[in-house]
Amino acid sequence: MKMCAVALVLSLLAAAVWLGLTMTTPESSGGGTNPGGGGNPGGGEGDKECVPTLLPKADLGLCGNLEVFYMELGNISCKIIPKCNLYRQKITAWPQPIVKFPTAMDGAQYLLVMVDPDAPSRRDPRMKYWRHWVVSNIKAADIKAGNIRGNVITDYQPPTPPPTTGLHRYQFFVYLQGDRVISIPTKENRNRGAWKLQKFLQDHKLQNHETSTQFMTEHDGELTPPDY
């Protein structure tokens, strides 16, 4: 009788295990979508997620605690803009990003600079640093909140890398301005290319940047690149 009871219990356990396996779904076994990844709303490349990827190790040196947010993409600090969902086309038309420096010093005043050191290409950077954006007199409270307002010295220009020039780095630097008056001569400000960034910093006695970051993107689709 005892042997029969043991056999019955073992049979019930085996049935329970079999039932549990048949009820396991792809999501519960890790085969579903990543709850934090955002999926692939554009349908792009199969089941791959359409999200920016991290920069190569060689380009992580500028990665500080500066955050750069573009619509649809979120924070793209130290990342490569993906080709899917037409992001590389869209970024050429989007307005200026939200730039946040969370650890800005209360009461301080900052200068923001955005440049492309790879103009017209990384192999031939004869027009470095292409000046994309310069804003001075930014209050700490504003840059902490991502509200870049102050004295706009050079209007924001979106990334527009030319065709067949590969990935371009778009670099952001934040300097502690103090009570300095920052300006760029009108004639120099008309031409964005071949900007002498180091001379500009020396002329205004600006020390090393407080923080920095960069992202990369390249030409994809129809757009009008700047006249290099």
Rank of each mutant, 00 (worst) to 15 (best):
Y170H: 08
K196D: 15
T160A: 13
V174I: 00
F172A: 01
Q171P: 10
A194G: 15
G166S: 04
W195L: 09
Q171A: 09
P158N: 03
V174H: 00
Q171T: 09
P185L: 08
F200D: 03
P161S: 01
Y170C: 02
T154E: 07
W195C: 09
Q198S: 10
G193I: 10
I184Y: 13
P163W: 01
I182E: 07
A194M: 08
Q171G: 09
P161K: 00
G178V: 04
I153L: 07
R180V: 06
G166Q: 03
Y170E: 00
N191Q: 11
N191Y: 14
F173K: 15
Q157P: 14
Q157V: 11
V152F: 05
P159W: 07
P163V: 08
L176E: 06
K196E: 15
V174R: 05
H168N: 05
G193A: 11
N189R: 14
P159Q: 07
P163T: 05
L197Q: 10
T165L: 00
N191T: 14
Y175S: 01
T164L: 12
Q198C: 04
P158G: 00
Q171H: 13
L197P: 08
E188R: 14
Q198W: 15
V181D: 10
Q171L: 08
P158V: 03
P158H: 01
T160K: 14
I184P: 06
V181P: 00
R192G: 09
P163E: 07
T165G: 03
L197M: 13
T165A: 05
P185T: 10
Y156L: 01
F200S: 06
R190M: 11
Y156I: 01
L167T: 04
Q157E: 10
P161R: 00
Q177K: 08
D179M: 08
T186V: 15
N189G: 03
R192I: 06
G193P: 09
Q198R: 11
S183L: 07
E188G: 09
G166V: 00
K199M: 07
V181T: 15
N191K: 14
K187N: 12
R180D: 09
R180G: 05
I184V: 15
G178A: 04
S183R: 13
P163A: 12
P161G: 01
N189I: 11
R190C: 09
T165E: 01
Q198T: 11
E188T: 12
P159I: 02
Q177H: 00
P161I: 02
V152S: 09
S183N: 15
G166P: 02
I182T: 06
D179S: 11
V181N: 07
V174C: 01
A194Q: 10
Q177A: 03
F173G: 05
N191R: 12
N151R: 14
P159M: 04
G193T: 11
P161H: 02
L197V: 06
V181G: 05
I182K: 09
P162H: 03
V181L: 12
H168F: 02
K196S: 08
I182D: 06
T160W: 13
G178R: 05
P162N: 00
V174S: 00
I153Q: 06
T165R: 05
P163I: 04
T165F: 00
H168T: 05
R169N: 07
A194Y: 06
T186F: 11
E188D: 13
L197T: 06
G178L: 01
F200H: 09
Q157N: 11
Y170N: 03
F173R: 14
G178D: 02
I184H: 11
P159G: 03
Q198P: 02
L176R: 12
R169T: 04
